[in-house]
Amino acid sequence: MLRSTAAVFPRLTSQLLSCARGSSCVLRSSGVQPHLATHGRLMAPIQQCSSQVITLSKYCDLSTQKYSVIYKLPHIKLLSGLSRLKLLQTAITLVILPPVYYLYLQGDVSSFLVSYSTGIAVFAGVMLYTASHFLRRVVGMMYLDSSQTTLKVSHLTFWGKRHDMYMPLSDVMTIGDAGDAVGEPILKLKRFSTPQTLYFSVRFGQVVDKRAFEKVFGSLT
């Protein structure tokens, strides 16, 4: 009985490590299920491990599935560069302010220069917030998995980097459900489960796979 019990854990451990490394996330049943029936004391911990593996499996499956591009925005790199440029401009403005205030306290610069520098810094901060609020909601790429059940959406972060989101197809609203018309230059990407809204454009972007795109968002005609 001890030998049989000891044989369970090496197999279970190796499979858990295999999932953590990004390979198959499905727990093999061979060699484990018989021991669940014969060793009641092992049932609770193994069931707990199994539920954790299944949860991790769903995450691994989303990131390792094969996706095909259905939409892309050619100008997304330009928008990413603009986002980073605004960050650099704001950082430079904030670095310049302390020396200006120091020189003003020393009597070396006028109050006009202090007011002007402060105004530039405030304006840069407002522009950064406004630009980031919009740019973070622009969709750069959209992908559909091979089973046509999951939509992968890529958009920018506050730092101008790429961020991928995974959403079930049943949760994505069509263009009509979102309250838009097909001919509008800017369209909303909305979901039923959250008020978060992203934006994409058929006019300025490119629909790579029209058939798959229409399966997600409805007809383009």
Rank of each mutant, 00 (worst) to 15 (best):
S68R: 15
L220E: 12
L151M: 00
V153R: 09
L128I: 04
P34R: 03
A178I: 01
S201M: 05
K77W: 06
R203H: 04
E184T: 07
L88Y: 07
S23L: 10
K190R: 11
S4K: 13
V114I: 01
T130K: 14
S132W: 00
S30I: 02
H35R: 15
S50A: 13
L62M: 13
L42N: 05
G81R: 12
P168N: 04
A178M: 03
A131L: 09
K66E: 14
I46F: 03
V32R: 06
L94F: 10
S30D: 15
G31T: 03
P45K: 00
G31Y: 02
R137C: 11
S63A: 09
G31K: 01
F112L: 11
C25L: 00
E214C: 11
L73K: 03
C60F: 09
G176Q: 11
D180C: 12
E184Q: 14
G125W: 01
K188S: 10
K188L: 08
Y102D: 00
L103S: 11
G183K: 09
P10F: 07
R191P: 00
L151Y: 00
L135S: 15
L94E: 07
S201W: 02
V216A: 10
Y104R: 14
S14C: 04
V95H: 04
S30Q: 12
Q15H: 13
G218L: 04
P99Y: 05
L105H: 04
L144A: 12
P45W: 00
K210Y: 02
P45A: 01
R162S: 15
S115D: 15
